[in-house]
Design a protein around this nucleic acid. Structure first.
Length: 365
DNA sequence: GATGCGTGGGC
DNA sequence: TGCCCAAGCAT
């Protein structure tokens, strides 16, 4: 820590920008985003689904998934009845697959223990699988107007800039401080619709004008109230010491292909362990080195082809994927392997990691 | 409190 | 290419 950190009062309450909530709500109603498919509803199921999909995921990505998922599972009962594999297939490519498992569990808890009705308070919502403090606040504020603050990446950026808050957000204690401050900035006596406009306004401001790089301070509705904006130092915030380290790894993927009776192809897929990367998804056999992959094959592997390596980065790892393609005769199956043949045309119905799906879709002849 | 967990995009 | 980030949560 540097300067005069933790012990100082967060921000003297007299210095909190009065009128912030009022200005923000007015701006949101006039200039915020209104056409997103999960807006304009107070249905907790739809809001919940969107909030979970949007965790650490960009809006443009979720736009591809949300309508499809909602069409297949229009309400919490339909989702609760689904199998885990059905849910995972629709989540495939969206990442952070524990969200999908928790989403399914949550639906089943809501149906079995809450008569199919989501709890209405933020604190009750937080007890459900996959719903943390920020998601619970978003659902409660959007659906019931509860006076509670979210704290996502957008809000962290907006509020640290507004207040010139220089605590290191890599530290949980500083995040808590910021959340307490966020609570004090809420509309004091929110009228109907105010919490929707305020909550959406925080996110809209962070997603548009108060962007990470090159913020548009000159166009900002709260410039007059914004400490860093007045100083021209907005881009210094939020303060966060970086901790992320990526390990480099090489994985060998064994792509076993076999003809079907109808002339199309099948591929050999196994279920990933239920812990770790791509947990519970279907995937080709993975090996730590080429020798290990070769050791599982019958002697005659002359026709095996090494395809071009593919780079794929995850949060904590930089993967170099080495695909090995081998065509097997129809009657042969990999010995001792716990997997199954899947028609290439049918992999849409399975949960697959994004790079594996990509490899299978563009296999050479 | 620190770490693990996907994928796509900006610069 | 590498680094950071995006409507975070669970353990």
């Amino acid at each position: 820590m540097s300067g005069t950190p933790g012990q100082e009062p967060a921000v003297a309450s007299a210095a909190l920008p009065t009128g912030f909530a009022t200005v923000l709500m007015r701006w949101q109603r006039h200039s915020g985003r209104h056409g997103l498919p999960w807006q304009g509803t107070h249905d907790p199921y739809r809001v919940w689904l969107s909030e979970v999909m949007l965790q650490q995921t960009q809006v443009s990505t979720v736009l591809d998934y949300y309508p499809r998922f909602l069409s297949r599972f229009p309400d919490v009962q339909a989702l609760a009845r689904a199998t885990p594999d059905e849910v995972m297939a629709l989540w495939s490519g969206l990442g952070y697959y524990s969200r999908a498992r928790n989403l399914h569990r949550c639906a089943q808890v809501v149906v079995a223990q809450h008569a199919g009705v989501f709890p209405s308070t933020s604190s009750e919502l937080q007890t459900l699988p996959g719903i943390g403090a920020s998601t619970a606040a978003a659902i409660a504020a959007f659906c019931h107007g509860e006076r509670v603050s979210i704290l996502d990446g957008n809000v962290r950026r907006v509020l640290t800039r507004l207040l010139a808050f220089d605590g290191d957000l890599a530290q949980a204690a500083q995040q808590r401080r910021l959340w307490e401050i966020a609570q004090t900035l809420l509309p004091e006596q929110p009228a109907a619709g105010d919490m929707v406009a305020y909550t959406q306004g925080l996110m809209d401001l962070g997603a548009t004008l108060c962007s990470r790089s090159r913020p548009s301070c000159a166009a900002c509705p709260v410039l007059a109230l914004c400490r860093s904006g007045q100083d021209g130092t907005a881009s210094r915030y939020p303060v966060k010491t970086r901790t992320l380290k990526r390990r480099h790894e090489s994985w060998w993927l064994l792509l076993l292909r076999s003809p079907s009776d109808d002339g199309t192809h099948r591929v050999w897929l196994e279920r990933r362990p239920n812990q770790g990367i791509w947990a519970g998804l279907f995937c080709t056999p993975v090996f730590a080195d080429e020798a290990a992959a070769l050791a599982t094959l019958p002697p005659n592997t002359a026709r095996m082809r090494a395809l071009s390596p593919v780079a794929h980065s995850l949060t904590h790892r930089e993967l170099r994927l080495h695909p090995l393609l081998l065509d097997l005769p129809p009657s042969v199956s990999p010995a001792g392997a716990d997997g199954r043949w899947v028609a290439l045309g049918g992999i849409d119905a399975l949960g697959l990691p994004a790079p594996v799906r990509q490899l299978l879709v563009q296999l050479p002849d």
